[in-house]
Design a protein around this nucleic acid. Structure first.
Lengths: 264, 264
DNA sequence: CAATCGCGTCCCATATAGTCGGACGCATGG
DNA sequence: CCATGCGTCCGACTATATGGGACGCGATTG
């Protein structure tokens, strides 16, 4: 409320407090850093931090501030109160046992992929992914599955998540970028027709994945399932074979979510 | 700020917002209910709820309000940034593989047990416990392990958690209650000497457990490990055999937490 | 060893920002 | 058809959060 003319319209004190939680989640460990990140005064910060500590949202460790136990309680509560996650569990486990690779369930939230379930694979290196972690929609197989229906967002999301350097766009880089964008849209069109999606090491070199969307009673995509593994376990042929498997698991979960086949 | 003369001294707006999150976590699903629980006015509530929705702490479902995706993100972040939980993982898995029963890791938080890790057993009925769940300290094996050092809190906690009906205490019930309290203290004294604790179906009929505390570099108890199973799998003899096993796992974790043997 | 710096806490005056109360629109149901 | 309850918006009031500053403390530095 000082530099730029934003209008947060709402409850500043609450927003300020939640902003502190976010900053700590992002690795800020001491109040001075919070001060330079938020612009709030010391006394204000300490009061807010004390309140958050008291409620268990933050806690003190030998190394400084960190997220508190209440968040663990609420986070797992949020997960288990999510019908998708609880309904999907058994189906995902069955899929995981069958394919022996890492299985994920994710939803879209705030323009990114949010993992709800991860079942680590039984071979190869373990993926660094974690439940509660966020990933870009257009770079992951599971994210593309979540976007399948939203043709109008493909380009928008691609551009938002795409170039690491927006400012520095040399003419040649721009040309390459446009080509990549067209390529992305073309692939999405293909996936959309097939009702599945791939990740060919775009997000993480050496990691490939096959994904399919989960739908609910209104036909809307409410989540997605994926199988991921290191490239040696994921030759093109196997990926092709996995498509119906992932789709099967996704269909089972969709059924439990009230999906009764594509209408229209 | 109306009925009783409390002095919340802090940041009301923030506290009000967090109180809403708690209420939703406790099952409140609509604003009218929030109103009667908090005493806040409709307009205030809607503003706070909107803010919390915007930040992903709450979300709307067909059935009303529920905890939002941000809490999943933060909750799992809190867990993985907890040294105890991340360090313990491998040791707990090893223990679980060995004993084939349910293994828990918990800490004390705000006067109750908070589970950080649960590894379901490979036989018998699955326990209903969940990571992020809270349990009474004096009724669970793992809670007693957390209390081992704090002799001065035994009675206090027992009384706080003990009688389901404080008001209605008939003379005879009171007598029985006092006997139970003395019995509890005696058992705790015994456990303290042995460095372990039991749960003989006190918390959940049919469930028994063996637990041991985890310590850090300052000798303080920072957590506890337990093995739980249904009574048929837990005859007295086996519980005795499990004591050194749990203690071993707890010791391994303690070592990683900086524990170097009991000083003093 | 003294002096300085940065952190954490507390207090108080000010005006900002949250609360309240009510009006309005809409859907539901009697 | 009217009545009831939910969700949103608005403006006035003042309760409440803010920020400036004083204080104590421990660590760091000269």
């Amino acid at each position: 409320m000082a530099s730029d003319g934003e209008a947060p319209k709402g409850a500043q004190t609450l927003l300020n407090g939640l902003a502190l939680v976010r900053l700590v989640a992002d690795g800020v460990r001491d109040v001075p850093t919070l001060q330079e990140r938020t612009g709030l005064r010391r006394s204000t910060l300490y009061r807010l931090v004390q309140t958050l500590r008291g409620e268990g949202y933050l806690r003190d460790t030998p190394h400084g501030l960190s997220l508190g136990p209440t968040l663990i309680e609420l986070g797992f509560g949020a997960l288990s109160s999510n019908p998708l996650a609880s309904v999907a569990g058994a189906h995902l486990q069955a899929l995981a046992d069958e394919v022996r690779d890492t299985v994920h369930l994710a939803v879209e939230d705030h323009g990114s992929v949010l993992y709800l379930v991860k079942i680590p694979g039984q071979r190869g290196a373990e993926m660094r992914s974690r439940v509660g972690q966020r990933m870009p929609l257009t770079r992951t197989g599971i994210g593309k599955a979540l976007l399948l229906d939203a043709r109008e967002r493909w380009v928008e999301r691609w551009r938002a998540e795409g170039p690491a350097d927006e400012a520095a766009a040399s003419p040649s880089a721009r040309r390459a970028g446009e080509a990549a964008e067209e390529d992305f849209v073309a692939r999405m069109e293909h996936y959309r027709a097939g009702g599945y999606s791939y990740d060919m090491e775009e997000n993480e070199p050496g990691i490939r994945c096959v994904a399919a969307p989960v739908r609910d009673g209104s036909d809307a995509i409410v989540g997605a399932v994926s199988i991921s593994a290191t490239a040696p376990y994921m030759p093109a042929e196997r990926m092709r074979e996995l498509v119906p498997r992932v789709q099967g698991a996704a269909a089972d979960i969709s059924a439990e979510m009230g999906y009764r086949g594509r209408r229209r």
